[in-house]
Simulated scan of single mutants.
Amino acid sequence: MINTIIFDFGDVFVNLEKERSLDQFRQLGLAGPNDELLALNDEFERGRISENQFMDGFRKHLPEADMEAIRTAWNSIIGDFPLERLEFLQLLSHKYRLFLLTNTDAIHIRQFEELVGESFASAFYQCFEKVYYSYEMGMRKPETEIFNYIIRKHDLSPRRTLFVDDKKENCDAAEQCGLQVWNLQPGVEDVVHLFDKKIL
């Protein structure tokens, strides 16, 4: 019997507009992600580099773009957060121990909070026993250590813990740690239909 759920954030609760972000970067002159920028993002999501260092890395590839235009393009990936998902989460919080575990950065979190407003963001965060951001932990999914850390920290039983994420590699890593998983498919499935999966 599941008594704990660890949720991902992007494309589970908040919709991600990946194509919109790519389009905005194309308009600034960036054809698409490259190895250097992907490595930079990895470092930023681990909290190993500052916001300014991250932005300076982008400016190397977009020397004509100003910092605000780059930040706007970067943040354009953050989409809407349907109210029904928050309401569903609030119901779950009365029955299960809930945690949030997301690979993210400080820029995106600020953007999310500004978009939804203080009241909505507060209601969302209050659903969780603890919110875990990769940039504060110094780790990222799909590293197994990030799951083991939470299991140890909160004395969780892996077989009674469900992990919900839209990325297969993250779910595979969670399974290696003994967690139950739901690899949610954005655009096909919605977190509010969790009970239809017959997992809980």
Results as ranks from 00 to 15, higher is better:
65 A>N: 04
52 N>D: 15
58 F>M: 11
101 L>M: 15
37 L>E: 10
26 R>A: 09
34 N>L: 04
55 M>T: 08
53 Q>W: 05
11 D>Y: 01
80 D>G: 11
68 E>H: 01
41 N>Q: 07
105 D>Q: 05
48 R>A: 08
62 L>F: 11
52 N>F: 08
56 D>L: 06
20 R>W: 03
67 M>S: 14
10 G>H: 01
3 N>W: 06
19 E>Y: 04
85 R>V: 02
32 G>A: 14
16 L>I: 03
42 D>L: 07
86 L>K: 12
9 F>T: 01
15 N>F: 06
57 G>N: 06
104 T>M: 05
80 D>N: 13
32 G>Y: 08
61 H>F: 15
101 L>R: 04
69 A>C: 01
103 N>Y: 10
59 R>D: 09
21 S>G: 12
22 L>M: 04
65 A>K: 03
31 A>T: 11
102 T>E: 11
72 T>Y: 14
91 L>A: 13
24 Q>K: 14
77 I>F: 06
59 R>M: 15
27 Q>K: 14
8 D>T: 02
27 Q>C: 09
104 T>R: 02
80 D>I: 13
45 E>I: 07
11 D>C: 05
4 T>R: 07
22 L>A: 11
74 W>C: 10
76 S>W: 08
6 I>N: 05
39 A>N: 13
105 D>P: 01
99 F>V: 04
100 L>G: 03
76 S>D: 03
80 D>M: 05
45 E>T: 11
66 D>G: 10
39 A>W: 05
36 E>T: 10
81 F>W: 13
47 G>F: 09
39 A>V: 08
70 I>W: 00
33 P>G: 07
71 R>V: 10
103 N>M: 12
21 S>F: 06
66 D>N: 15
66 D>H: 12
61 H>V: 04
23 D>W: 00
19 E>A: 09
52 N>K: 15
60 K>P: 00
24 Q>E: 08
14 V>N: 06
97 R>W: 00
18 K>R: 14
83 L>C: 08
19 E>K: 14
89 L>I: 10
77 I>G: 01
21 S>E: 12
30 L>Y: 06
96 Y>C: 12
47 G>V: 04
82 P>G: 10
24 Q>V: 00
53 Q>P: 02
84 E>Y: 05
38 L>H: 05
60 K>C: 11
16 L>V: 02
40 L>C: 08
68 E>D: 08
101 L>G: 11
57 G>T: 06
4 T>C: 14
10 G>F: 04
97 R>Y: 00
27 Q>N: 12
22 L>Y: 02
43 E>N: 12
105 D>T: 03
77 I>N: 03
87 E>L: 13
36 E>G: 01
66 D>Q: 11
8 D>V: 05
25 F>N: 04
90 Q>R: 15
41 N>G: 15
83 L>K: 15
101 L>Y: 10
47 G>I: 03
47 G>A: 04
92 L>H: 01
50 S>C: 07
69 A>P: 00
83 L>E: 14
94 H>L: 11
84 E>K: 14
56 D>V: 01
79 G>D: 07
41 N>L: 09
